[in-house]
């Protein structure tokens, strides 16, 4: 009986970080994705948005947050398949209930960064929440681990 509960606790402990921190687990990125979606901004982790959000993002790349990021459909489709396959399992709706387009507006993102002061975001080395690599130097490798965080002064 005792042994069983110890084993149960160990099992929970092992599963805990994976279940609780879906976005913390390092996930090496597909080089094609980094090439196509990591030139103007950091290649955002696919698990930051749910599949429905990724579909919405890819629906119009020619007006992508005010910038033309058009891609021919033959090049775009495998990338969409890739991000959808590695997407966040829980939905990422925006304030209007529709799939959010901005990862930085997703609830999990806001919650994970709630201890970051407004003034910190505005530091010249950071400027915007979408500048992942400013504080997560291993972001390009898909790692957002807590121990890798370095907040620039």
């Amino acid at each position: 009986m005792k042994l069983t509960s110890v084993a149960g606790v160990l099992l929970l402990a092992a599963a805990g970080p994976v279940l609780a921190g879906e976005h913390r687990k390092a996930q090496p990125l597909d080089p094609r994705y980094v090439e196509e979606c990591g030139s103007c901004h950091v290649a955002f982790p696919p698990r930051g948005l749910a599949a429905a959000s990724w579909t919405a993002v890819f629906a119009d790349l020619s007006t992508h947050f005010g910038v033309d990021a058009s891609l021919d459909p033959a090049a775009a489709q495998p990338l969409l398949d890739y991000v959808r396959a590695h997407a966040r399992r829980k939905d990422t709706p925006g304030d209007d209930g529709k799939p959010a387009l901005r990862m930085t507006k997703a609830r999990w993102f806001v919650r994970e960064h709630d201890e970051v002061a407004a003034a910190t975001w505005q530091r010249p080395a950071i400027e915007t929440p979408s500048n992942c690599a400013a504080c997560h130097p291993a972001a390009e490798q898909g790692s957002f681990a807590e121990h890798d965080i370095r907040i620039p002064r």
Binding site: S39, C40, H41, V42, F65, G66, V67, N131, A133
Partner: peptide, 9 residues
């Protein structure tokens, strides 16, 4: 430096 995101080019 990207005018919107600040990413190095």
């Amino acid at each position: 430096k990207h005018a919107v995101t600040g990413k190095t080019i």
